[in-house]
Structure formats: structure tokens, C-alpha cells
Design a protein around this nucleic acid. Sequence first.
DNA 1: GAATGGTCCCATAGGC
DNA 2: GCCTATGGGACCATTC
Lengths: 102, 102, 102, 102
Amino acid sequence: MTEAALNSYTSDDTKQADEGKPQEVGGVTGQRLRAFLERIERLEEEKSALAEDIKEVFGEAKAHGFDVKTMRKVIRLRKLDADKRQEEEALLETYMAAIGMV
Amino acid sequence: MTEAALNSYTSDDTKQADEGKPQEVGGVTGQRLRAFLERIERLEEEKSALAEDIKEVFGEAKAHGFDVKTMRKVIRLRKLDADKRQEEEALLETYMAAIGMV
Amino acid sequence: MTEAALNSYTSDDTKQADEGKPQEVGGVTGQRLRAFLERIERLEEEKSALAEDIKEVFGEAKAHGFDVKTMRKVIRLRKLDADKRQEEEALLETYMAAIGMV
Amino acid sequence: MTEAALNSYTSDDTKQADEGKPQEVGGVTGQRLRAFLERIERLEEEKSALAEDIKEVFGEAKAHGFDVKTMRKVIRLRKLDADKRQEEEALLETYMAAIGMV
DNA sequence: GAATGGTCCCATAGGC
DNA sequence: GCCTATGGGACCATTC
């Protein structure tokens, strides 16, 4: 995405910048906000790309004759395992904290 | 669904231990399936990590006094904008291809 | 909640009913819709009541010196257990279906 | 947090087996905790069941050609209305109490 | 008021 | 091609 596209909805500030004058409107705060927005948008693009990748891998597996639905079930189950383990540890920590073992 | 697929979650390692021979059960197919599962799980972990990052950035922005809900709105609008722009460009290319402008 | 309250947003039909004439506007369809809405609202009231009950039990437990946070953790963990078991069974069924054991 | 609370998830049954004596560890307190947990879990099951029921009713309505999304909107509006009415009644009662009208 | 967990709603994707 | 099912996101309530 181009910088221009990013500016499309906050264009007032940009226009001023284009005219070679420091931002009197919005100013530093606007700069900071824009920086946050762009960081987030960048991360979301990466996230979407990963989602694409995942879909592709499923497609590949399917092309090799594997059943996607079952694969999803297996993955979900493995995730439950991991979550359970994590939850157990969290509970243990809570207990230890409760009896003063920091 | 293949027999190998069905065996995927009862690990090859175990079977090997039982029979003392590498990959008699499931074999190459099981290996392939596992590879797919692991690739997917890896990608999903990365995706989750990015989701975490995004949350953190929002948190940071909030700490600087920005309203997260409004930020989300802005991002949504900008995304629509970007999608629209992309759509238009795609259409333009279609037209240009149609009239032989490569 | 009174019947009048339930009718507050679909009052047109009701008004006609009040005037001793069968519903020409909306008619049977409106009746059916209202019946659905009322069933749902009834169920949601019951659900809210249960949420209240749960809060009360936590309160009671707290009054007996139990730590609510830890209790929640334990409950969550037990739920994960249950989910995992259920998921395992679902996976097994998928497998059996896959090999034609209906 | 009490010691009994900490023992709640490692069941009394096991301890009993180990020591051959009923309820020496955890004891009455553990019993009480377990009772609380079970009451809560029972209530949560009922709550989930109701959520299921609600989904089913929506499904039924959909099968009759109603638009679920719109139905949700209507229900939300009617709820707001009900809340408002209740609020007003509460205020009225407060006033009446204030002027001694029991 | 900050953070966390829970619930609800929507949008997308896969199956029939 | 609909339609159900599932995952993700937003919102809200509650706790510390």
C-alpha cells in the first residue's frame, strides 16, 4: 500500500505538510496517531498473509489426499491439549502464590 | 480418507517402539501428514503472535491517550478505501487488457 | 414482563386486534414472528436468571472464605477436560465414519 | 485462600485411598468447596442448554423465512424498552417512598 | 481505570 | 448455490 493510500482519511494534516509548513492542526499528536495506525495496519497485513499461507497449506494437503476436516479436528484437539497444560500451570502458580511460595 | 491419515495422531514414534522398525505403519504418508500439521500449527502460532502484537500496539496508543474504538473505526474505513482502490485498479487492468494495452 | 411490554414495538398489529378485527396487516406471519420473538425473550430471561444464580453462588462461596478467582480457574480447567474428551470422541467418530464403520 | 481450597482439585477420594481414612485431608471444607463447584457447573450447563435452545428457535424462525439479524435487532430494541420502563417504575417507586406513599 | 475473561455477532468457508 | 458450521473480532462486565 502506498503512503498516499494510508493518508486518504487523514488527508488534512498531510496537505499542510505538503505545503511545507509544520502541522498546526493535529500536529505532533496527529503524527503519533498516524504512526500507530500504520504500525497496526502493517501487522494486520502480515496476519492476513499468514492466514493465506495456512489456507494454501490446507489446499496442498488436500491435493495429497488428506481430509481437511479431520486435519482441523486433530489440530483443534492438539490445541486443547496445549491449552490444558498451560491452564494447569497457571492454576499451579495461583496455588503457589496463595501459600506464599511466590 | 487414507489409512495413513487415520493413524496420524497416534504417533509413528510409538509404533516404531512397538515394532522396532522405522516407518512400517503409516510410513511416508504419515510423515507427510505430520509435516502438514506442523507447518499449519507453526503458521498459526505466528498468526497468534501477530494478534498479540496488534493488541500491544493498541495498548500503547491507549496509553498515549488515543481512543481505541475510534482507531478501529478509522482502520476499517481505510481498509475499505484500500479495497476499493484495488478493485478499481483491477478493473482498469481488465479494461486495458481487453483493448490490447497489455 | 407484561404482555403489553412485549408488544411495545409491534404495536400496530395489536392495535388492530384490539379493535376486534382479524389482522389484515402482517396477519398470520406477524403472529408467527411475534411468537418466535416471545419464545426467545422468555429463554433469554431464564438465561439471565441463571447468570444471576451463578453470581450468587460465587458470592456465597466467597463468604465462606473461598477464593473466587481460583475457583474460576478450576472450573475453566475442568471444562477444558470435558471439552477435550468430547473432542476426542468426535475425532474418533470421524475416523470410524471414514473407514466405513458408520 | 485456605489450605482446603488448595486441595480442592486433587480429589478427596484419592487421598482417602492413600490413607484409608475418610476425610482427614481437606475434610468438610473440601466437601463444601466441591459442592459449590458442582452447583456452579450445573448452573452453567443449564445456561449453555438455554443458549442452545435460543439458537434453535432462531433456526426455526429462519426456516420460516424470517431474517435472524433483523430479529436480533428487534429483540435488542424491545429489551431497551423494557429496561427503560423498569427504570421509570423504579424511579416512581423511589419518589412514592420519598413522600411516604409506601 | 487497567486488564482480563466471557459473550455475542458477524463474515467467511466448507459441505450437501 | 444455499446453508450450516466455525473462527475471529468487538463489546461488556468484572476484578484487582
